[in-house]
Simulated assay, not measured.
Amino acid sequence: AATRLLITADAGGSNGYRTRAWKTELAALAAETGLDITVCHMPPGTSKWNKIEHRLFSHISMNWRGRPLTSHDVIVNSIAATTTRTGLKVHAELDPDTYDTGIKVTDSDIDALPMHRHRFHGDWNYTLHPQPRDTTSAAKNPRSAGRPSPQPCTWRLRDPELTGMPEPALDELINQLAQKLDELREHRRLQQRGGERIRARGAGAKAKLTTADRVLATVLYLRKLGTRDLLAQLFGVNGSTLTRAVHHVQPLLAKHGYTIQPSTARFRTPADVTAFLANSSTAEIKSAC
């Protein structure tokens, strides 16, 4: 009568949190059994917290010590015969199936999984549902089928759940750094030109990121919400532009005594950020960008 299954796993190996085949096969198991499968990975370097290691494997090792493991039968029987005075019982059987190697799981395969990443470290904690993702909206609106996942508007990235600070505090930070950032930018352009301006300030190519966006992007980067490439997608620039912004803003943050604490939320795609913001209790929902 169970409807859910909880699995605790280490951070590495065949059941590691980075292993795509692990997630893909779990999704297949969820679809086959109808169970919601929740996985909680031990953080890297903390497998000593894994109770299974202490309560099961140690007794198995003691049970077969000194016995030559000469065949599969000896191994399976030694494991299955393990018991303790506190009531441990072990079931073991040999899996004779063969498993292909070298299977590639693409980004689109992972995106299609019915997987929900939890608010706290979604890379280590997630749930796979037995039903595929809802595609009814695409069916109702065929024009939307095949379009890239929706990306949140830049103003939505100011959400305190993402930045770790109220919007007034973020505005104060931007105002405090804006003048110095403009001065540094003007100084770099002076060095690139090798002389004074010929055209008036503001003429020519426009900056790809505004001063406010540069500060916001740096805050989100230091919050470790996702990769550099993900943040670049969210701001509509390439990775090099975002990296330059971080390199310019980060020293100023340190100089002014600002420490940005990492977030416990982790995102892999813009759609993950959009879904998170849609459920955010602090975000103000607006109808259009």
Score class of each variant (00 low, 15 high):
53 E>A: 14
39 V>N: 05
80 A>R: 13
36 D>C: 11
106 T>Y: 12
108 S>H: 10
117 R>N: 04
44 P>S: 01
120 F>V: 11
84 T>G: 00
84 T>V: 04
95 D>F: 01
41 H>G: 00
46 T>F: 03
60 I>S: 00
47 S>K: 02
33 T>I: 15
114 P>C: 09
74 V>E: 05
58 S>C: 08
93 E>I: 00
51 K>H: 07
97 D>H: 14
107 D>L: 13
109 D>K: 09
96 P>K: 02
43 P>W: 05
42 M>C: 03
106 T>C: 12
54 H>S: 04
65 R>G: 04
41 H>Q: 00
49 W>L: 13
119 R>W: 08
82 T>M: 03
105 V>H: 13
71 S>M: 11
109 D>P: 05
86 T>A: 12
59 H>K: 01
55 R>K: 08
101 T>N: 12
63 N>M: 01
51 K>G: 07
74 V>C: 04
86 T>Q: 13
47 S>T: 11
40 C>P: 01
58 S>Y: 08
107 D>F: 09
48 K>R: 13
109 D>Y: 06
41 H>R: 00
117 R>K: 11
42 M>T: 02
49 W>G: 07
82 T>A: 02
80 A>K: 13
71 S>Y: 11
68 P>F: 06
72 H>F: 09
93 E>C: 01
37 I>Y: 02
39 V>Y: 13
84 T>W: 04
96 P>D: 03
104 K>C: 12
34 G>D: 04
75 I>H: 02
38 T>V: 09
40 C>G: 04
39 V>S: 14
107 D>G: 06
99 Y>C: 10
81 A>E: 14
43 P>E: 07
78 S>Y: 00
69 L>T: 06
62 M>L: 11
90 V>A: 00
67 R>Q: 10
96 P>V: 00
51 K>L: 13
111 D>T: 15
107 D>Q: 11
61 S>K: 08
49 W>I: 06
91 H>K: 13
71 S>H: 09
106 T>P: 09
66 G>P: 02
105 V>Q: 07
59 H>E: 02
59 H>I: 01
106 T>D: 12
84 T>K: 00
83 T>E: 14
116 H>Q: 12
83 T>M: 06
99 Y>K: 12
112 A>I: 08
41 H>F: 02
86 T>E: 15
77 N>Q: 14
87 G>L: 02
109 D>R: 08
104 K>F: 11
